[in-house]
Simulated scan of single mutants.
Amino acid sequence: MKWLYFISGLLGTAMIAIGTLLFSLKRRKRSEHEFGAATAGIYRCVEAFNVASLAGVALASIVYLHGNRLLPLEMSDRSAWEIRIFLLTCAASV
């Protein structure tokens, strides 16, 4: 059952990644001179940010699960620290 959840999570992430990639490629073809000479660089940054944010969410989810196990149960703001761990990992990956 754990492997089924893992594979389902990977498939969901791949679906989102492919969707953002196809959207940015379609948009790039439709408006090739939208930003003048800087169009190629801007779209390259957008695609890099898409990849970094998707990889960051996957990495942050893994770190969140490990942080959940490693934080002591008697910690006063345990749930707040779990959220901080997730958000800091996501921000660090971007």
Results as ranks from 00 to 15, higher is better:
Ser93Gln: 10
Trp3Val: 14
Val46Arg: 12
Ala91Phe: 14
Leu4Val: 15
Phe86Leu: 06
Glu34Ser: 08
Val94Trp: 06
Cys90Met: 13
Ile62Cys: 08
His33Asn: 06
His66Trp: 05
Gly56Cys: 03
Lys2Ala: 13
Thr20His: 13
Ala91Ser: 14
Val57His: 01
Val51His: 09
Ser61His: 06
Ser31Thr: 06
Phe35Lys: 14
Tyr43Asn: 14
Leu73Phe: 15
Ile42Asp: 11
Ser61Leu: 02
Gly56Thr: 01
Ala17Tyr: 07
Leu10Ile: 09
Leu71Gly: 01
Trp3Gly: 10
Ala80Gly: 12
His66Glu: 10
Thr39His: 14
Ile42Ala: 14
Ala92Tyr: 05
Phe86Ala: 01
Leu25Ala: 09
Phe6His: 14
His66Asn: 02
Phe86Lys: 02
Phe6Trp: 15
Phe23Glu: 05
Lys29Ser: 15
Gly41Gln: 11
His33Arg: 04
Ile16Lys: 01
Leu10Gln: 09
Asn50Ala: 07
His66Asp: 02
Ala55Asn: 07
Gly19Pro: 02
Leu11Val: 09
Gly9Gln: 07
Tyr64Cys: 01
Arg30Asp: 07
Arg44Phe: 09
Leu4Asp: 15
Leu70Pro: 00
Glu34Cys: 08
Lys29Glu: 10
Tyr43Val: 03
Leu11Ala: 11
Leu4Gly: 15
Ile83Gln: 03
Phe35Arg: 04
Cys90Gly: 09
Ala17Lys: 02
Ala80Leu: 07
Ser53Ala: 01
Lys29His: 09
Ile83Val: 14
Arg30Val: 13
Ser31Gly: 05
Gly19Glu: 01
Ala14Pro: 02
Asp77Leu: 09
His33Gly: 04
Tyr5Ile: 03
Ala60Met: 03
Pro72Asp: 02
Ile16Arg: 03
Glu82Lys: 05
Ser53Ile: 08
Asp77His: 13
Leu4Tyr: 08
Phe35His: 13
Ala60Asn: 02
Ala48Pro: 04
Phe6Asn: 08
Thr89Tyr: 15
Ser61Asp: 03
Arg30Tyr: 04
Ile7Gln: 12
Val94Glu: 04
Lys29Asp: 12
Ser79Lys: 04
Phe23Gln: 01
Tyr5Asp: 12
Ile83Pro: 02
Met15Ile: 13
Thr13Val: 08
Ala80Thr: 13
Glu32Gly: 13
Asn68Gly: 02
Gly56His: 06
Phe49Gly: 06
Ala38Leu: 10
Ala40Gln: 12
Leu88Tyr: 07
Cys45Lys: 12
Glu82Ile: 08
Tyr5Ala: 08
Tyr5Cys: 10
Arg30Thr: 08
Arg84Phe: 10
Glu34Phe: 05
Glu47Val: 11
Arg84Glu: 14
Ile42Leu: 12
Ala92Pro: 04
Ser76His: 11
Phe35Ile: 03
Val46Ser: 15
Gly67Ser: 02
Arg78Cys: 05
Leu4Trp: 12
Lys2His: 13
Gly9Val: 05
